[in-house]
Design a protein around this nucleic acid. Sequence first.
DNA 1: TGCAAAACGGAGGGACCCTCCGTATACTAC
DNA 2: GTAGTATACGGAGGGTCCCTCCGTTTTGCA
Lengths: 215, 215
Amino acid sequence: MAVAESEAIEPADSVSTDRRPRADAIRNRDLLITAAAEAFAARGADVPLEDIARSAGVGIGTLYRHFPTRESLVEAVYRHEIDVLCERADQLLESMPPEQALAEWMQLFVVHVATKRGMLSLLRPLLSTNPNFSDQTRGRATAAATKLLEAGVAAGTIRADVDGGDLLRAVGGICMSTDQERSVASERLVGLLFDGLRHGAAGSPSATQPGDASA
Amino acid sequence: MAVAESEAIEPADSVSTDRRPRADAIRNRDLLITAAAEAFAARGADVPLEDIARSAGVGIGTLYRHFPTRESLVEAVYRHEIDVLCERADQLLESMPPEQALAEWMQLFVVHVATKRGMLSLLRPLLSTNPNFSDQTRGRATAAATKLLEAGVAAGTIRADVDGGDLLRAVGGICMSTDQERSVASERLVGLLFDGLRHGAAGSPSATQPGDASA
DNA sequence: TGCAAAACGGAGGGACCCTCCGTATACTAC
DNA sequence: GTAGTATACGGAGGGTCCCTCCGTTTTGCA
C-alpha cells in the first residue's frame, strides 16, 4: 500500500519561501510510515525505532529527522490510516451500490482499528491532550461515514435517522469493547449494526419510527 | 507515613512450612513501597527504578527481588493506598460524627487519586487485564464507603438511597474527568456531591424522593 | 555463640534512545 | 551538460535505563 500522495505537497498560493522537500525525503517519509504501521500493529507501541528504520531501509538518523518523537510517528501513522479509510469510501461508492459500499467500509474500519490496536497506548494520550488533532481526524472520518450513509439513504436502502457521527461512535465502540486480539467478534457485531441500518429504510417493508429502540 | 503492618504476615492456622520473611526484608519492602508512591506521584510512571531503590536506601537488586516487574511495584503501591484509605475510614468514624467523617474521607479520596495520577498509565492496563485484582481492591474500597454511608444514615444525617458503589463511582468519576494537575476543582465538586448526600437525609427538613434528579 | 538460610548490594552486559557531523544526493541556474 | 549549494542521509557513539548474577552481609534459630 503506497502512502497516498503525501498530502498535497504545497498549496500554490503560498510564496515558495519554503521549498517542497526533496524527492528522496518524501519517499523515505512514506517508507517510514508504512514500516511503522506494520511494526506497531505486529509488535505493539514499544517496537525499537531502530527496527522501524531498518525495515524501512533507512538510517536511524533519517527516522529522527522526520519524526523527532515516537508520538509524532504514531500521529503520522494514524493520520495516514484515516486518509486511506476516507479514500476507500469514495472508491467503494464508485464501484458498487451504496449499501454494499457502506457494509464493506464498516468492515474495513474494523480491520483498521485492529491494526491500530498496538499503537493504542500511545494514541490515547495523544488524542486526549491534542484536541484539534483529534477533532480534525474525527471530522474527516465522520465526513466519509456521512457520505456513505447519505448515498444509501438517497438510494432508499439505508434508514435516514442515523448520522455519520453516530455510526462512527457505534462502530468504534464495538471495536473498542471487544478488545481481544481477534476481531471476528467485532466483524459479526458490526454486521449486525449494518443490518440495523437497513432495517427501516425508505424502501423497506417494515419501517420503524425514528428513535425506536427495538433491536 | 509508615506502611501499615505489612498486611498481616502469616495467618497462624497455616503450618509454618514457609517461614515469615526476615525482618530486614519486611522493612525494605515497606521502604520501597513508600519511596515508589512518592516517586510515581512526583515524576510519573517512568521514573527509573534505580532512583526508587536509591531513595528507599536499598540496592537495585533488592528492589528487583521484591518486585520483579514495574507492574508488580505499581500494584503493591496501589494496594497499599487502598489499605490506608480503608484504615482511615475507621479512624475517622471513631473520632468524629459520621457525616463529618464521610466528608473528610471523600476529600482524602481526592488526594489519593491525585497521588496515583502518575501511575495511571500503568495502572489502567493492570486493572483491565487482572479482573480479580481490581474486584478485590474495588470491593475493599466499596466496603469502606458503605460503612461510612451507613453510619451517616443511622445518625439521620445522610440520605439512605445511595450505596457505597455509587459513591465510589461518583467520586472516582469526578476525579478522573477533571484530569488537570491540580485537584482544586475535584475537591469543590466532591464537596458538592457531599452536600447532595446530606440533602434528603431522614433528619433533613427538605427530604426528596429517592431517584429525584434535582441538584 | 555459631551457623545456615535468607537477604543484600552493585558491577556489568545488553537494549534502546537520540545527537552530531562527515558524506551523498537532488535540485537550480547557467 | 555541468557546477554549486541547499538538503537529506547514515550510523557511530555517548548516555540512560534495565535486569541478572554472585560474592558479601545480616538475621534468626539451636
